[in-house]
Design a binder for these strands. Structure first.
Length: 426
RNA sequence: GGAGAGAUGUCCGAGAGGUCGAAGGAGACGGACUCGAAAUCCGUUGUAGUACAUCCGUAUUACCGAGGGUUCGAAUCCCUCUCUCUCCGCCA
């Protein structure tokens, strides 16, 4: 969440930001509730002070009459206080719920616009690959090579689940290890994280665990959810912690399964592995000083580039438009790799995403550091995809396909796979 | 899953319903002593709010795992939950 003390001092900015993001948040109502809350808090605290004062008068020995009078006064105070507290709790719950709906500020250079197509492509790497034959999409390739099985996935787990088979299993593990080696080389501490997290952690990271629009699977009756990304578990790692400034930046990378409901996500652009209910992902995460977050955002982006240029894939980098940013994100860059089987003639499809969430998540999760002046301040938190295995596999299968239906292995992965081509097994 | 023990500040650890935001250590920081250091001695040392002052501040509220309850008054008594440890069961 943002700093609620700024609701009035940065009113115009917040209002415009909500507009730029095409969100529906009634700032004026929130501010009115904030004022109601503050007034009630004042009353409550005043009553508590009176109660404490009354109680401390009764410490020593008193004659019975004085004591009885004080007790009577205390009882009266207690009743008034209870009703005021009830009023306060009500408005407090409403207000803190509302305050969480206010999105993070946006980087001044982020392109303003409503949707995907308003995002700005800021860099292109390699030309999209040209094929001397009509390239297949990964679903067809996967079936023909017997390395991907959506039908059995649907039968056993439901629509949009899949089995990975044969050499593709090895390729996925190779990709995991390839990406892990690069990220660790850059000083990230490797983790394998839980695939489940508590709702309060989800909410602190900025995910909505409940409701129709939620993309999250909740585990009924447990207060926990399946994670949609290791961003959740890596970001929750230091909840309620005061970090040493000397330890910053903290670089972590976490491998997890990712579960997403993706309700209504079917269609041409979601086919096959591109949009699924479960996949594996290696995520990067950085906790850092506020003044350094933009620098580390670039660092994460450059590692993502290192991973995808290493794979020999054509891609572009997109500076995400305001309307397409998640509420916690201050700025977001996506890498979109060329996918020859996507659309009619091939298209770019998102393979990574890195967000600078500034102090938005840190404030909700209460993650701080002690500064040189002794003050305790919120850290900045950044996340970025090292590799989302399912999407990387889409790009590799479609770009590295051969006319005979086999798939070559990107040279950097061969040391990890132990073979250089996937062909139909007999 | 069952039985027992526990959870207090940066750490260890004490804590009768009122004198407790919390003893005593340790650590850290500042100072004294010293050519310097160690040792010793002295001092300081939580967080988040709120109201006035906005220059050091003054007053006040909350926080002793979390949430409820009892009471004029709760770190302390009661209930529920979470986590940790020991033992049993089950298991990779």
């Amino acid at each position: 969440m943002i700093d609620i003390k700024e609701l009035k001092t940065r009113y115009e900015e917040i209002k415009k930001n909500i507009q730029d993001r095409y969100m529906n948040v009634d700032l004026d109502k929130i501010i009115a509730d904030q004022e109601k809350r503050a007034a009630l808090l004042l009353e409550v605290e005043d009553l508590r002070a009176k109660r404490n004062e009354n109680a401390s008068k009764m410490k020593g020995k008193l004659d019975p009459e004085t004591r009885q009078a004080l007790i009577a006064e205390g009882k009266a105070l207690k009743e008034t206080l209870a009703s005021k507290e009830a009023e306060f709790n009500e408005i407090d719950a409403v207000f803190s719920q509302e305050a969480r709906t206010i999105p993070n500020y946006v980087h001044p250079d982020a392109p303003v616009g409503k949707e995907d197509k308003d995002s700005l492509a800021i860099k292109f790497h390699l030309e999209p690959k040209k094929f001397p034959f009509k390239p297949k999409d990964h679903v067809q390739l996967g079936e023909e090579l017997d390395i991907l099985d959506f039908d059995s996935g649907a039968k056993v787990a439901g629509q949009k689940f899949y089995y990975i088979k044969n050499q593709l299993v090895i390729l996925q593990m190779a990709l995991e290890r390839y990406a892990m080696d690069i990220v660790v080389k850059h000083g990230f501490t490797p983790f394998i994280t839980p695939d489940i997290a508590k709702e309060e952690i989800l909410a602190g990271i900025g995910f909505n665990p409940r409701g129709e629009e939620s993309n999250i699977y909740t585990l009924e009756g447990t207060g926990t959810c399946l994670v949609g990304t290791a961003e959740i578990t890596l970001g929750g790692y230091y909840q309620n912690t005061i970090l040493d400034k000397a330890d910053l930046p903290i670089r972590m990378t976490g491998l997890s399964h990712c579960f997403r409901r993706e309700a209504g996500g079917a269609g041409q652009y979601s086919k096959g592995l591109y949009r699924v209910h479960q996949f594996s992902k290696l995520e990067m995460f950085i906790y850092c000083l506020p003044e350094e977050s933009e620098k580390y955002h670039q660092e994460i982006l450059s590692i993502e580039e290192e991973i995808f240029s290493g794979l020999g894939l054509a891609y572009r980098i997109v500076d995400t438009a305001t309307g397409d940013l998640g509420a916690p994100a201050y700025r977001k860059f996506d890498i979109e790799a060329w996918m020859p089987g996507r659309g009619e003639e091939g298209e770019y499809g998102e393979v990574t995403s890195t967000s600078n969430c500034t102090d938005y998540q840190a404030r909700s999760l209460n993650i701080r550091y002690r500064d040189d002046d002794g003050k305790i301040r919120f850290v900045h938190m950044l996340n970025g995809t090292a590799v989302a295995l399912s999407r990387a596999i889409v790009a590799i299968m479609e770009n590295y396909q051969n006319e005979d239906g086999s798939i070559s292995i990107p040279p950097v992965l061969v040391p990890y796979t132990g073979f250089d081509k996937i062909t139909k097994r007999k």
